[in-house]
């Protein structure tokens, strides 16, 4: 009986929400139960919004209109294409460990793979002999098996071609002529690296590149693409629109989540008349990744004149100092 009474007294959660629209808001301790009324003292700037009757997006928790214009920025990055190159210490350490492993491993069971007296076996012997004579071979067996360490200054474990030449010299192909079937790997430094083409996405393969755009003005010209929020769009929607307006739609991008990865608050300079009832801007940055395509500033709606794909340090050299201080923590080192 009691239980039935309790059950009937309990209300579904959805009903509770309907009756007390602000009761379930627990996301900020500063929340005060004043209804956020749209439009008190807020005149939407129809010129900059371009949406007549658009609902202002600057309504705060206390129901006050904020005196900052909200904007969304896009941190569009190209993730590293290449694996990280090893430091000299890592290279040496891995070599040392490989030699130790060779000392502990079972010998190569050659007659399991090459039948005695066949052409392949002859080729294997010939190539092995060449390696031994060239001093390029060390095995963990025999009398010199203990000598697995290199002398100081011996750089023979390093290879400038990722071990390609040695592979060609030592692999048993079963073919008569030179091993033309081996395809040389492409160099890790691309043509874009050589000419330092900072608009290219083939550059700096080991690093993350970020898209920066340049506005037509003297100060704070280089920035991440940013634009004012319009109507009732969310941050991600706004960021997607911003990117399309800034750099065209021909980029295959992926926006990572709905959460802004950083923000920037600044006040307009004295004498700035572009935004009459606001004192500054709050920019929320959204993270995105590019998989294909390229930025195209033709007919862009934000008045941009140039773009660059830059690594973290290069961004610091290009952008304004105060801007750099606030965007630096969002960016990754590699």
């Amino acid at each position: 009986m009691n239980a039935a009474g309790l059950r009937s007294a309990r209300q579904p959660f959805g009903l509770l929400l309907k009756q007390h629209p602000r009761a379930a808001r627990t996301y900020s301790s500063t929340a005060v139960a004043t209804p956020p009324t749209a439009g008190d003292g807020f005149v939407p700037d129809e010129q900059s919004h371009g949406l007549p009757g658009g609902i202002p997006s600057g309504v705060g928790i206390r129901g006050e209109t904020t005196s900052y214009r909200l904007a969304s920025g896009v941190v569009l990055s190209r993730p590293p294409m290449l694996t990280r190159s090893l430091t000299p210490f890592e290279e040496s350490y891995y070599f040392y460990q490989r030699r130790l492993n060779q000392r502990l491993a079972l010998p190569f069971t050659r007659y399991f793979y090459f039948k005695k007296g066949t052409a392949a076996d002859t080729e294997r012997k010939r190539k092995l002999k060449a390696l031994v004579e060239g001093g390029q071979l060390w095995t963990g067996f025999g009398k010199t098996g203990w000598k697995d360490e290199l002398m100081v200054g011996d750089e023979s474990h390093r290879s400038d071609d990722n071990g390609y030449r040695r592979l060609v010299e030592s692999s048993v192909t079963g073919e008569d002529g030179d091993s033309a079937s081996f395809e040389a790997p492409l160099p890790r430094r691309t043509k874009a690296d050589e000419v330092n083409d900072r608009r290219s996405l083939d550059r700096a393969g080991e690093r993350t590149l970020y898209l920066l755009v340049k506005s037509k003005r003297e100060k704070h010209a280089w920035r991440f693409p940013q634009a004012v929020l319009q109507g009732r769009e969310t941050l991600v929607e706004s960021a997607k629109r911003t990117l399309a307006e800034a750099a065209g739609v021909n980029m295959n991008t992926w926006f990572v989540g709905n959460v802004p990865i950083g923000h920037l608050v600044y006040e307009y300079e004295k004498g700035f008349q572009g935004d009459a009832d606001k004192i500054g801007k709050k920019v929320f940055f959204m993270k995105a990744r590019i998989m294909a395509g390229q930025a195209d500033l033709k007919d862009n709606k934000l008045g941009l004149e140039d773009f660059l794909w830059l690594t973290k340090e290069e961004i610091g050299e290009v952008v304004d100092k105060s801007y750099w201080e606030s965007v630096k923590p969002m960016l990754v080192a590699h």
């Binding site: 808001r25 996301y27 900020s28 500063t30 956020p36 997006s57 600057g58 309504v59 705060g60 928790i61 904020t66 900052y68 909200l70 929020l229 009732r232 969310t234 941050l235 991600v236 709905n258 959460v259 802004p260 990865i261 950083g262 923000h263 608050v265 709050k282 929320f284 940055f285």
Partner: peptide, 19 residues
């Protein structure tokens, strides 16, 4: 990220909720 979210919650509840 946390600072940005706090700033967003102070600025606009609808945007924060969506974020």
């Amino acid at each position: 990220i946390r600072d940005a979210c706090e700033e967003l919650a102070k600025t606009d509840t609808r945007l924060f909720r969506n974020a």
